[in-house]
């Protein structure tokens, strides 16, 4: 499971798998999407869409409705786009095991091909944000410092300055970003999953998103210059450590000084 998760988080692998799926069901033309004749693409996608619809009816329709129009228990999926489907299903958030304040991350039941098929189905219902391309996800040249500024303006208020996550109202929470892949981060910004607002490419252009991803990736990998990090959540953890650790140590030492030697 761990190995699978690690592979899943790798944006390149995920994208490759997506391509493999498309190749498998639709043929070589699918790769060059913009250049390919529209009709051929339609045929190529159709198989994936059909498979996606089947999976959708099995796993999703009880809440989101037979035609993805939404019900009392689940919002409409028309127009949410492939990116949204990929984010929700490939992190295990959807399908939800039980109704709750928020869909939790859990082990994934679907293969990458299944996810791609469902994404294709939902995308076929109405236009929506597409799954980001490898080029969009390439943050190697992004400016980390600029990403940090944008992160603190747009993300830190919910996900905390160190990306450790934070509480929202009524038991909801903004999850930790410490193990999120570039693709997950990108898709989340693009689609606004659960209660997260949307940060569209129009207000937060691709290069800004890449900068933010670069900053988060840096946070994930960064050493802790001052020693053990205490979760990087600041004063609460420090206070706890002080009372449970430091004060306890000092009381121990004081007792040692007070005990008579034998």
């Amino acid at each position: 499971m761990k190995a699978l998760a690690a592979r899943r988080r790798n944006p390149i692998v995920a994208t490759l798998l997506l391509f493999v799926a498309l190749l498998g069901v639709g043929g070589v033309y699918a790769v060059a999407t913009s250049a390919a004749p529209a009709e051929a693409v339609a045929t190529a996608d159709q198989t994936a869409i059909d498979e996606g619809k089947r999976l959708y009816l099995e796993g999703c329709s009880s809440c989101h409705g037979l035609n993805a129009q939404g019900t009392a228990t689940g919002p409409t999926l028309i127009g949410v786009g492939a990116a949204s489907v990929h984010f929700q299903v490939s992190t295990g958030r959807m399908p939800m095991a039980a109704p709750g304040a928020q869909a939790p991350v859990k082990p994934v039941d679907y293969s990458e091909a299944d996810v791609a098929a469902m994404a294709a189905y939902i995308a076929s219902l109405a236009p929506g944000p597409a799954i980001p391309t490898a080029e969009q996800l390439d943050y190697t040249d992004a400016d980390i410092a600029e990403g940090g500024v944008l992160f603190r303006i747009n993300c830190a208020q919910c996900h905390q300055a160190a990306g450790g996550g934070g509480a929202l109202t009524q038991g909801k929470h903004a999850p930790s970003l410490m193990s999120s892949s570039a693709q997950e981060i990108y898709e989340a910004m693009l689609t606004g999953p659960q209660n997260m607002p949307v940060f569209a490419d129009t207000t937060l252009p691709v290069e800004d998103k890449q900068a933010i991803i670069a900053y988060i990736k840096d946070l994930q990998e960064a050493e802790s210059p001052g020693g053990i990090a205490l979760g990087r959540i600041g004063p609460v953890a420090e206070g706890l450590f002080l009372w449970a650790g430091v004060i306890a140590v000092f009381i121990g030492i004081a007792v040692w000084i007070g005990i008579k030697a034998r």
């Binding site: 944008l150 303006i153 747009n154 607002p197 949307v198 940060f199 569209a200 129009t202 207000t203």
Partner: peptide, 19 residues
Amino acid sequence: DGTYVKLRPEDIPVGGLVS
């Protein structure tokens, strides 16, 4: 905020948030 770009209404999708 941060990038100081003027905004058009169509730039902000439903569910969007801009500082």
